[in-house]
Design a protein around this nucleic acid. Structure first.
Lengths: 330, 330
DNA sequence: TAAATATATGAATACGTAACCATAAAAGTA
DNA sequence: TACTTTTATGGTTACGTATTCATATATTTA
């Protein structure tokens, strides 16, 4: 591998001068600069980023710990995060973490002395939170958050759950089911609590058998759906903890020839891009802001990294219902 | 930042011994090992990956240059690639490149001395191909390929275009349009040629005004759609260069209240996961293999990196039609 | 012209690790 | 016992860069 020393020897200058040509060219005379540039070209030299990181203690790398892309929410956020970070001169290391592999993911982030970490997948009481804080690496969470989180960007999850319930209640539904994710996740937890409050405020009862706070795998969701629809009195509306779950249910419904929204109303939360597709038209609750949650988070994280911001970032976006074609009056 | 020297001093051993504890613990006596481990714990030490990369000339990092995630094809491949690479102990640097920023992306890959590059976004005559080869970094392309490509994984694109044409012809369509991407991309080019051959073999004429090989942005595709449907004799079937384009057209059709498939048949190519969704049910042409193209490519790349393979990887998967609900007899 | 300053370059060093070589102690062998 | 081999550890160096300090030359100033 050709190094700056090789370039220096080839051009007949010192290694220091080569370094200067790359970093502070205004400090080197034109003819010398030309000589060195020519040598760089001819030897096909590229500086070694690791050596640079070592001496500068800066990497220009951000780690993104995202949820899986089969959840369209993470499609939208990953795109926004990676593109913005790249535009700002950072590389992004992406990992799609299941909660088991979290520890490994954290370790590699630390070992690589990354400039910052942006993550969604954190539990309310995640033990890694304290370790992360101790490492002194700036980090921000989006969507989910930890009990003691300093920097986070989220939507108003309680309100989102509340509005979802209110929406189907206003449409006249009484038999309303809930399909959400694990309550150890702040997002699902608050959305569920909001949903319950919505029912309570309308004095509508819900049986425990109508409530599924389950794993978010395709199989588990489909299982919940089949269980619900096999009841003697199946629900006429299902509120879900996320658009990804709603899309899953929608898929199940169409396969079973259940007419959405005539036989069953489905409402999601997140307002992912895909929900707007003409063939989907999912009614959902989402941020009133045009800006993607991931975009807001990465923007703030980079501000923090570059010391342009030392106050805490605690953003909770307001939400509203986006009424489309998967809910209807009963 | 606490280094292995700090750990050594704290534990009363040499830095060499600390290094041994981490890499070859079987060479160090139990009591010494315990002392060092204790020091590592108490000082909260993590080895610096850059220093290690520098001396070992290995990074454990792979760069993925993917197309944008709003194309669901890249959702499927990115997931497969990142997950498999992580399982094999590699980190993945993801970049979503537009053709303009390609040069930058290549440069950072080289500067970081990554172990390998997996990329889709290469043009048939891309000038960077030669530069990449000269750098001696193993790389493989998936989906697309370069004129002189050594390692690639693709589907039989010509056959895919051919089968798409044949499918709608067999359904009785005569007025068949084509909406594809730039012909500088091998994939689109071959699919288009296959499509033309399919028409020719059935002795069906196609007017130039029925052919759009355009930019793949949402706007350009919608524009092509509107132009086509405004003709006095609009097509009864549209063959598309990719599922992402087909989904785009499907969205446009539903917005304009055009009934698919009764008024218009649409067929894609790629068989992306999303095309199977109950609300979409896109007829498409895709690989006969269950395995994702990205998965096959990353698997091979890692074999190449680890020298388990020195022959060329040239995989062209056979294709078949997956008939769903967006095409119909006329 | 002589002194003071600015400009352009090089020599030496630090960053944190793994690898190589050296050495002391312990264990095995004749 | 005397010698060889094995085991456990430490000292030193290389990796490739940026940075700090030193120095020679060119330029400005009095």
């Amino acid at each position: 591998m050709v190094s700056s020393k090789d370039v220096a020897k080839y051009a007949g200058v010192s290694q220091t001068t080569v370094s200067r040509v790359l970093n502070t060219p205004e400090l080197v005379k034109k003819p010398t600069l030309d000589k060195v540039m020519k040598a760089i070209q001819e030897l096909n030299y590229f500086p070694n980023a690791h050596a640079r990181s070592l001496v500068q203690n800066k990497t220009g790398t951000i780690v993104l710990l995202s949820g899986p892309l089969h959840n369209p929410f993470f499609v939208d956020t990953t795109t926004a995060i990676v593109n913005f970070a790249n535009d700002m001169g950072y590389r992004v290391n992406v990992q799609f973490v299941n909660d088991k592999k979290l520890s490994e993911a954290y370790a590699t982030a630390i070992e690589h002395k990354v400039d910052g970490i942006i993550l969604s997948c954190i539990l309310i009481d995640d033990p890694f939170f304290e370790q992360l804080k101790r490492m002194n690496i700036p980090f921000i969470t989006y969507n989910r958050k930890h009990r003691n989180n300093e920097h986070f960007v989220e939507i108003d999850n309680f309100e989102a759950g509340y509005l979802a319930a209110k929406h189907v209640i206003d449409l006249g539904h009484k038999r309303i089911a809930w399909v959400g994710g694990p309550l150890t996740v702040s997002t699902f937890n608050n959305r569920y609590l909001g949903f319950l409050q919505g029912l309570r405020d309308a004095a509508i009862d819900i049986a425990a058998s109508y409530i599924f706070n389950t794993d978010t795998s395709k199989l588990d969701i489909s299982h919940a759906f089949q269980t619900l629809m096999a009841y003697p009195h199946p629900p006429t509306a299902i509120c879900t903890g996320a658009d990804s779950l709603a899309l899953n249910l929608l898929d199940d419904a169409m396969r079973d020839n259940i007419d959405v929204p005539n036989d069953l109303s489905i409402i999601g939360i997140d307002n992912v891009d895909l929900s707007q597709h003409g063939a989907i038209q999912l009614t959902t609750v989402g941020s009133i802001s045009e800006q993607n949650l991931g975009f807001m988070a990465i923007e703030k994280l980079i501000e923090i990294i570059e010391n342009k911001k030392n106050s805490c970032v605690k953003i909770t976006e307001s939400v509203k219902v986006f009424e489309r074609s998967t809910t209807r009056k009963i």
